[in-house]
Nucleic acid binder design. Structure first.
Lengths: 203, 203
DNA sequence: AAAAGCTTATGACACATGTCATAAGCTACA
DNA sequence: TGTAGCTTATGACATGTGTCATAAGCTTTT
């Protein structure tokens, strides 16, 4: 019997997945939760064979959670499958770094998900077809730590002076970071830079 | 027998819904499609009792589709239920204008969806609890047509001069529109104005 | 030890952005 | 027939933004 925990914040999808997985004779859904914190608690207490994790969840996202599971000595045999809407290279990279066993898009059929669960139990790794392509086309995030930070703040609508107050930098420095971020992302304005960075999953 | 068409672009959720609705004795899923255009075609040919429509779909969104269904003489008896992730007042307003029969969030349990299908068939209207609240707290979109247009273009990263080329206006005019949009949205920069407008579903 | 790259900073320049006052033409509504 | 609101426009002003040259201190890698 494959024991599974489902962490997905969208109730309709979570309920539907749980309902359908219950029809599989070899699968048992031991818990279904809607946020990262609750997921972490139930994973520790239940020690499931497989965790299905959404990325965007309250309190703790699926990638951070995957990282925590991988570095916990008691959870070495627990397989991790990320299930997400987003085909962002940045997300995929983080998932690979966290050594997840599967990375599926919500745009896959459920049968593929079920099949994938059985595969990761056997020690195989699974990845959505669409994503296998982005793996090869993968672009490294060209932004430095500070550039990323500054751009993230710019995204939330802060002006240069507000950003420099936030990070205890001078205006000039912040403008320099934004300038180089804009150039690295081949954009012309901060807005465009923000758009591409979001789209690539870099901020 | 209640005949249903499901239009939802996320395959996993669409498949799950279809699978679960098939267990209901009084419900028949006559078609499931992944974009607005395909939905429109199948709705015309199948004449279903109920359409479940996602909002964000390729080719035609669910709100435009709802509008088309409501204005088609042959589809007067077809009930429309919007099922979406987003609790944006702007979306809800458009849905109400299109006289939809139901507006549910994907954050509801499936049982509620099934129950809602039976209710709209009886002529009732259904709306998610969370949304009933926003209905009362509803804020009117304070932006004029032009202001909305200009802000939408700004959102995609265009500079003032690019926007004025796009709309055949002078730079000064575009700046005035942005300025008044920023003030109406109680923001300080175009970026902040864009953020709040997106969040309210106004652009 | 040298090279490369990140972090921080300054000053200067050109241009973009946001505000304000003002105004003319238009539509819709009372 | 006003009056209100939208659309369009101009000029002026202050401030914000993006680029460039330059540089010092720091860590990491070769």
């Amino acid at each position: 019997m494959i024991r599974i925990v489902i962490a997905e914040d969208q109730q309709m999808l979570r309920g539907a997945l749980t309902a359908l997985l219950k029809f599989e004779a070899d699968i048992e859904v031991v818990a279904e939760v809607s946020d990262g914190q609750a997921a972490w608690e139930v994973i520790q207490s239940e020690q499931p064979d497989v965790c299905l994790l959404d990325i965007e969840m309250p309190f703790m996202n699926g990638l951070e959670l995957a990282e925590k599971i991988r570095t916990d000595a008691l959870l070495q045999s627990c397989k991790v499958v990320i299930v997400t809407t987003f085909a962002r290279p940045g997300y995929l990279q983080k998932a690979i770094d966290a050594k997840v066993d599967g990375y599926l898009l919500k745009d896959e059929p459920i049968d593929y998900l079920i099949e994938s669960i059985r595969k990761v139990i056997k020690g195989e790794r699974v990845i959505s077809m669409d994503l296998a392509a982005t793996l090869f086309m993968k672009e490294e995030n060209p932004l430095s730590l500070r550039e990323t930070e500054v751009l993230r703040l710019a995204k939330s609508g802060l002006t240069t002076s507000e950003i420099c107050n936030e990070l205890f930098l001078t205006k000039g420095t912040v403008r320099n970071y934004l300038s180089s971020a804009i150039q690295k992302l081949e954009s012309e304005t901060r807005q465009q830079a923000i758009n591409t960075a979001v789209q690539k999953g870099w901020i």
